[in-house]
Design a protein around this nucleic acid. Sequence first.
DNA 1: AATTAATTACTGCTAAAACGGTAAAACTTA
DNA 2: TAAGTTTTACCGTTTTAGCAGTAATTAATT
Lengths: 69, 69
Amino acid sequence: MNNLDLGALIKDHRKKAGLTQLELANLAGVGKTTVFDIEKNKETVRLNNLFAVLRVLNIKVEFKSPLTK
Amino acid sequence: MNNLDLGALIKDHRKKAGLTQLELANLAGVGKTTVFDIEKNKETVRLNNLFAVLRVLNIKVEFKSPLTK
DNA sequence: AATTAATTACTGCTAAAACGGTAAAACTTA
DNA sequence: TAAGTTTTACCGTTTTAGCAGTAATTAATT
């Protein structure tokens, strides 16, 4: 369940960090294609690759449920 | 960056829902191996499969950053 | 303790993610 | 408009996640 457009969120953060997709890909240690795919909300990407990108952009992930809280 | 043990979180929620790994896998439309892997924090799982499992267990995902607020 | 259920741990196979390379659009800036 | 940059798109190749099946541990029930 995705709150909002994750791809757009990442793109926005990347822009604000002054990075190109290729630079972000290199920093995250993934291929440029993966960054493209993530920004286009391709959900078949692997979790580790997404996490690597989020780490570079300083974006944290939280999981919440009626029980969790 | 993972707050805490996502695998444990999912396992806990599955238990509380009274589901076996196989049942959860079927409900989520993924193979049992995938559920095993997720609960063992194998980060190479695909995002769509993780989301499918989270959806069944009613766990939401949030992304936060200094910018996001 | 014995039986059942559930989880973990292999297996081989297949589909597809990830990758780099290239090329062509879409924006920028001079 | 032209040159440069960035993004998108496509294409082969390689790697591997996902899968069902099976078997072997582990946990729970009686």
